[in-house]
């Protein structure tokens, strides 16, 4: 199952990518599953995505919990706590 994954702010910088198409195994079709799948790449990936307290996730542009299910074609974004205003 393919999903579009976006990274913002310091996550984007530390991972060296802002957007990519990721093939997620069907057994990992939740936000938490996708995160673990990406962490298995090792290096910066396992470091940056390790602390879910400082990593927020949105699915199809809505804030989502780790348990949120994923569907083919979903847009999943990982980012740090927001600092606008």
């Amino acid at each position: 199952m393919k999903v579009k994954v976006l990274f913002f702010a310091n996550l984007r910088e530390r991972l060296g990518t802002g957007v990519e198409l990721v093939d997620v195994p069907d057994s990992a079709s939740t936000v938490a599953g996708l995160r673990l799948h990406l962490m298995q790449r090792g290096g910066a990936w396992s470091e940056v995505l390790a602390d879910m307290k400082v990593v927020r996730v949105a699915v199809n542009q809505d804030m989502a919990a780790a348990s949120a299910p994923l569907n083919p074609g979903d847009e999943v974004a990982f980012f740090p706590p927001v600092t606008g205003g």
Partner: peptide, 12 residues
């Protein structure tokens, strides 16, 4: 304003 600060995806 209070919720913009915590909910809107902006990063400085």
């Amino acid at each position: 304003m209070d919720f913009l600060k915590t909910q809107a995806p902006f990063w400085k």
